[in-house]
Every structure is written in structure tokens, then in C-alpha cells.
Design a binder for these strands. Structure first.
Lengths: 320, 320
DNA sequence: CGGCATCATTGGATCGTTCAAGTTGCCGGA
DNA sequence: TCCGGCAACTTGAACGATCCAATGATGCCG
């Protein structure tokens, strides 16, 4: 198979290179008749744009980057997996490709940004695992690099677009479900205060209980099954427990057999053991991230950043 | 920050562009003294190769692609996750970047190959989930596209390099462990015959039992916790069960409480519930895939393809 | 000291695309 | 009739690297 360039197409269609380029990039400036002829030539030759050449001229690579993290606590690892899949799908539709990178620590990640930007002319980034005092967003913002975060900027000023899952709404839904099932003594098993996500998950449960005028009882544990189990044992009065993660929920199931338990993240573990859990709409979140990033990349972004809070859904199984 | 090109570096070092290029690509042809001067200029200017320009001239992109699959049965989803992380790491060290793509079906995947090859000049592919009658490998081989598979070519001729985990060795190790613990009636809970991976896992158990001169008893179920549980109930004599996956093992745990159970894949679920399981060396497998691919890409590959079978390890927990 | 091989270095051409600045042809108004 | 204005298309240059052929410098031998 010969190499098919824009020049090949031009000859076949009997026009100049630039006209072919116009048909591809700004079809409206070409007469419909010519446009159609060029399109036929493109199709019959199986022509495809050479991204490297385009990139050299325009400085845009049609590439996005996402960090792939080591499966940390493992049990929640598949969350990123599903997000990545959704993002790759959405990016393809929008004409972009997703590149992976790893990095240890925020500084290492910033060094990687620099490398990817100068070597590959990356068009944009999707950041995950935002946290308090995150230096990555300001670094990117200072250099006018388009980016979107999955996870809101905890503590930092809200100057960029982000997509997040409404964690509080998730635990609120779980709590309402338990209330509707007749429970009144609903406890909470959460993470130590300070993490944005964990605090929001507690808040959803607490406010729903307050609205119902019921007393609350909660305990705290670092994430993990064993630690969750020993903390759950201290929830003596509760007949039902809302948990900040599936790992904790698994611990609670072991420590308090027979009680109603709800987890968070709807991981594979939850499906496997029949744990009722709050499910994040990861494919949708990924799609929205791509939408927002595409707006930024096309320069048609609104002047004020967009913030999207997606509602999670409760997947009811055997444990509640 | 100004744009730093090879010309900027050349001026700073007082040499020509080509000499700078030689320092980068074939340092041995440059006199040590000059080489050092150029290297200093590169460092002080923070110069980095523009991959697009290089690619246009050389036709090589320094990009690899891997398919990211939808989390199928979910419980085993994080296997790909960990593999991807390892591959991204190894690729970075070797000077490559990993690009993701999704595709539905083998034909869709082949169409994507074509697109990635012509648009982005991809250098190579890493294939996962090889299966009987896989058309992807022959498509790539016909076009001389470098690729490596993670998973051996079941049934197909062994004409390309691959890396795989020795599934039989995994179940053999599990069986030996159970024998050493005093069990003699060890059953097997597997998938229906026909899948290469599943058959290998059965074989490891069967041959170890045969060596020990013990009778065997096994049942079959499609992958899944519930299906595993109902199949496991038919294993009436066994005091211990080796399973083809963690999902099946979870079913067995439910159906046969108190018996010794070993799963396969060491997924998050296994860690969470304390299930003894066979762990695949995914980071190493990814690294080896990258090594083999790098050989192909550098043209220093041996004439006969390399095949690597990596031994898995048994992670002993509460269930055995 | 000339001749010649060897090595280090140079300058121009090139990859495929898009940008910027043309050229052509047609229409309408003065 | 002439000319401005516009739409449709063409042409030459440029992006930043590497390849190739040619040049300059160096050392060795007779």
C-alpha cells in the first residue's frame, strides 16, 4: 500500500493541496461540488491525516494525558479503571487520543507535564485524585495548559472546570433508603476527618439524620477491612451502618453480621458479596470531563469555569 | 519561555544542527570534547526533542498502544489495571509512551490498528486477552507491525513473541500447598473446557493430584459467584477446593464454609475477604512485554520469537 | 612535503501539513 | 467600459527534526 498524502488526494480530485486541507478543516469555504469530489477522493484512497505533520504546523497534537495510579488500597482500584475506559471512549468520539503516564508525587507529576508538553505537545490533561493543597492545578493554570479535574479542588480556589460525584448525595440516598426500610438507629463508619471526599460522605448521612430528627452515632477508621471491622464493633446501638467505602463496609459486615450495611463505590467486591453500595456514574463523569476539556481546547469555553456535580445511584443488594 | 529547538542548541554550543542531532542519536561519532559542550548547552537550555518533527522524518513515533477493556465480569477487572500501570512504567524507562484505545470485537480492533498506524504512526502494540482463532495477530504479522501478546496464542501457530503467566504452575502450587497442609481430597472448581487459560488451570491441579496418586473430583461453572456456589455444592467429598478464579472461589466459600479454598488472580476481593489466592506477577509480565517489544522495535530481536512463561506465586491467607 | 585515507562537521533537501499571501474569474455599480 | 469586491482556489514558505552528500581538518606514509 502506497503512502497516501494530501498531495495524492489533491491530484486525484484535480485540486490543490490547500483545497483538500480546507475540505478537512473548514469545509464551509469550499464549493459544495468541489467538496464532494474531494471527499470521494479521500474515501477511495483511504486517506488519513498524518497527525505528526499537522501537529508540527499547528502545535496541537490531539492528545490528552491521564495518570494511571498504582492500585493503592486495591479494593477501590477498579474505579480508575472504569473511568479510564469511559474517558478513552469519549476522547475517541471527540477526535482525541488518551496517553498514559505514571508519576510519584505531585512534583514528579509536574516534571512529567513539562516533558509531555515539550516533547509531545500535549493538548490537555485530566487530573484525578485532587487533594488539599494540590500544586498541580496552579502549575497548569499558570502556563495556560487546558485541564479538567475529576474531583473538585478541595480547599483551593475554584478557578478551573471540574466534574465530581456528589458524595453527600450518595450517603444521603443510602440513609433515606435505610430510613424507608424502617431503620431509625443508623450509624456511620467513616474515615478520619480532613479528606474532602470522606467529610462529604459523612455530611450526607449526618444531614439526612438531622432532617429526620434522629440521633447519630459514628465511628472512624483508616480505610481497610480489618480496621473497619474493629471500629464497627463500637457501633453498639445501630441496626444499620452507612460506610464511607466498600472496604469499611466489608469490615462492618464481618463485625456486625445481620445488620444492614451500605458501602460506597460499588466495587467488584460489593457485587461479589452482595453488598448494597453507592455507585458512581464513572462513564458519565468521564464523558463530561471530555466535554469540558473539548470546550477549552476549541476555545469555545465559557469565561467562567463549569462545575458539575453528578448524582450517584444506590445499588440495592442483600445487605440492606 | 522561548521555544528551544535543535538550532538554538547548535548556536549556543557553537556547532551545527547535525552535530547536536548526532550527540542525541549517535553520540559515539562526535568527539568527546564537542559532545560534552553540546550536552551542556542542551541541559542549560532545557532542550527536549520535538517528537512530531522527529517522527515526520523518521516515521517512528515512540508510541505504543494497548486496548483498555470494559471491566467485564468486574471482579477480575483490576488485573488489566495493574498490567497497564506496569507497562506504562516500563515504557517510560525505554523511551516510549503508552496510548489507550477501546474497540468492540476483533474486527473493530483491527480497524483501530489501521487508524492508529496511519494517523499516529504507532510503533507497536501490546495485545491482551488472546483467544482461540484470534485474527488480530495475523493481521499485524502480515503488515510487519511489531507486537507482543500478553497471553500465549491459543491454538494459533507460535510465530510471534509472547509473555504469559504459567497458569498450570499456579494451580499446581496451590494444590501442593493443600497437600502439605494435610489435605488429600482436593477438588477443583473450574470453567467449562475450551478456554486455554481455564484448561491450563485445571491441568496444574490434575497433574499434581496424579503425581501424588490421589483421586480427583471436579465440577464446572461459568464464572460468577452464584454459579460458583451452586457448582461447589456438588463437591461433596472434598475437604479443600482449588478454583479457577476468585469469583468462583468466593462462591465456594459461601457454599462450603469451613473448607479450605484457593482462588486465582489475587484480586482485591481476595485481599478483602482473606481468600488464599494465586497471584500473577503482572508488573513483571508488563516489563517483559516491553523488553520484547523494544527488541523488535530496535531491530535487535532474535530471529526466532521469544516465549516467556512466568511463574505465579501463592498468597496464603485465612482460607487455606 | 605532497598525496590520501579517515574522521568530524557542515549545509541543503526533505517529511506532510497548514498559514499567509497571492491569482483567477465573475458580478454589479458608476 | 472600467474597477472594486468577493468567492473559490492556488502557490510558496514554514514548522523542527534527520538524512545525505559534500566539505574541512587531521594524521600517516612514502
Amino acid at each position: 500500500m502506497e503512502k497516501v498524502t494530501i498531495a495524492t488526494v489533491a491530484v486525484r480530485a484535480g485540486v490543490s493541496r490547500q483545497t483538500v486541507s480546507n475540505v478537512i478543516n473548514t469545509p464551509e469555504v469550499v464549493r459544495p461540488e468541489t467538496r464532494e469530489r474531494v471527499r470521494e477522493a479521500i474515501a477511495s484512497l483511504g486517506y488519513r491525516v498524518n497527525q505528526a505533520a499537522r501537529q508540527m504546523r499547528t502545535g496541537r497534537s490531539k492528545l490528552l494525558a491521564v495518570r494511571i495510579e498504582p492500585a493503592r488500597d486495591g479494593i477501590n482500584g477498579s474505579v480508575l479503571d472504569r473511568f479510564l475506559h469511559g474517558l478513552t471512549d469519549a476522547a475517541t468520539v471527540a477526535g482525541y487520543r488518551v496517553m498514559l503516564y505514571t508519576a510519584s508525587g505531585d512534583d514528579g507529576e509536574i516534571a512529567t507535564y513539562e516533558e509531555l508538553l515539550t516533547e509531545y505537545d500535549l493538548d490537555g490533561f485530566v487530573l484525578t485524585s485532587t487533594h488539599h493543597g494540590d500544586p498541580r492545578t496552579s502549575w497548569l493554570a499558570e502556563r495556560d495548559v487546558p485541564f479538567v479535574t475529576f474531583g473538585r479542588p478541595w480547599g483551593a480556589p475554584d478557578t478551573h472546570s471540574w466534574v465530581d460525584v456528589d458524595n453527600a448525595a450518595g450517603t444521603a440516598a443510602a440513609t433515606r433508603h435505610l430510613l424507608a426500610t424502617g431503620h431509625t438507629r443508623i450509624g456511620f463508619l467513616g474515615w478520619p476527618a480532613g479528606s474532602g471526599v470522606g467529610d462529604a460522605r459523612r455530611e450526607g448521612w449526618a444531614s439526612t439524620m438531622a432532617e429526620a430528627g434522629l440521633p447519630t452515632e459514628d465511628v472512624v477508621a483508616v480505610d481497610g477491612v480489618d480496621s473497619g471491622a474493629s471500629a464497627a464493633e463500637r457501633l453498639t446501638n445501630a441496626t444499620a451502618v452507612v460506610c464511607a467505602s466498600d472496604s469499611l463496609a466489608l469490615g462492618a459486615m464481618r463485625a456486625l453480621p445481620g445488620r444492614a450495611i451500605v458501602g460506597f463505590d460499588d466495587t467488584a467486591v460489593a457485587r461479589a458479596v452482595g453488598l448494597t453500595s453507592v455507585s458512581q456514574p464513572l462513564a458519565e463523569a468521564a464523558g463530561r470531563c471530555m466535554d469540558l476539556l473539548a470546550e477549552l481546547l476549541d476555545g469555545r469555553a465559557p469565561t467562567t469555569p463549569t462545575h458539575l456535580l453528578l448524582p450517584p445511584s444506590l445499588v440495592v443488594r442483600r445487605t440492606a
